[in-house]
Nucleic acid binder design. Structure first.
Length: 277
DNA sequence: CTATGTGTTCGTGT
DNA sequence: CACACGAACACATA
């Protein structure tokens, strides 16, 4: 489920506990969520620690506690972070619960593709510092995108947009939204895009990231009540799963098909496989 | 009962 | 060697 903006939304939820001290830790007895990490180490090290700050990058989050303690979270496909009352009793799909005096921070994930990483050290862990530069940073340049598309020239552009090593945080719906706005057919091979198309693609990557963060993760300190309530009806987002869905721009039918191993939605009237040049 | 999904990783083939 | 692709992971929901 969660891509860039949703990840930021969930990070902000837990960030209400910044400054609070962890009193107790619950870990699900047979959670696969803790791949590399030992749940026992977590339960031993976190109690007594104060949540200092947090950050989101790509589809990951990092929560920083005092005493050089770091908690990484990846939500996988079905993960979410919630905030419950301090008396909260963990339910079936809750894998990690951090209790403070004021509340309970819950990580739930039915499909268990998510991940929790605990790290002890003076600085953030390597997996965090290695994450590619954000779409909205100066380092995410049109030239870097062009070079990457050249390297991946034989893969469909849809599949390339999902590669986190260059497009951190872009997931299935964002990729479709970007291609739709850029009027590029998802099955075009990355190497077939013109220089102008590459530049448009780069611009729309940034624009969709900016708009998604604003509408989903809120502005300033405010968080929307639900994930998607503020997404405009003019986005492809709301129409991609409708049967008989229409392109908000051309009003012509949308198409849904597998591209690059993922269900992909596009507007054939707008996104041509063989554009006239 | 079967098919599907807002994700990542691994093995295999080119 | 680099890259492309399909399968696997695990479970709720339609």
């Amino acid at each position: 489920m969660p891509e860039l903006a949703e990840v930021e939304f969930f990070r902000k939820r837990w960030s209400v506990a910044e400054g609070e001290r962890i009193a107790a830790v619950f870990t699900h007895p047979r959670a696969k969520i803790f791949r590399g990490t030992d749940p026992a180490a977590l339960a031993r090290e976190l109690p007594g620690a104060r949540l200092l700050d947090s950050a989101a990058a790509a589809k990951q989050m990092l929560f920083h506690f005092n005493g050089d303690r770091w908690l990484g979270v990846h939500l996988g496909m079905s993960g979410e972070l919630r905030v419950e009352t301090s008396a909260y009793v963990p339910a079936k799909h809750d894998h990690l619960v951090l209790r403070t005096a004021q509340r309970a921070l819950v990580f739930a994930d039915p499909r268990m593709f998510g991940r929790v990483d605990f790290h002890l050290g003076a600085g953030p862990p390597a997996w965090w510092t290695k994450i590619a530069p954000p779409l909205l940073s100066r380092a995410f340049t049109a030239a870097a995108v062009a070079a990457f598309l050249r390297r991946r020239r034989r893969a469909p552009i849809k599949a390339v947009l999902l590669m986190q090593e260059r497009f951190p945080g872009i997931g299935n719906w964002m990729a479709d939204e970007i291609l739709w706005r850029a009027a590029i057919h998802p099955q075009r091979l990355a190497g077939s895009l013109t220089a102008a198309e590459v530049r448009t693609l780069w611009r729309e990557c940034r624009q969709v990231a900016r708009l998604a963060l604003r509408t989903i993760a809120g502005v300033g300190g405010k968080l929307p009540p639900d994930l998607n309530v503020h997404i405009p009806r003019t986005w492809l987002f709301w129409h991609r799963w409708e049967d008989g869905g229409l392109c908000p721009i051309t009003k012509k039918p949308l198409v849904r098909e597998e591209v690059g191993g993922r269900t992909t939605c596009w507007s054939p009237a707008r996104q041509k496989l063989h554009p006239r040049r």
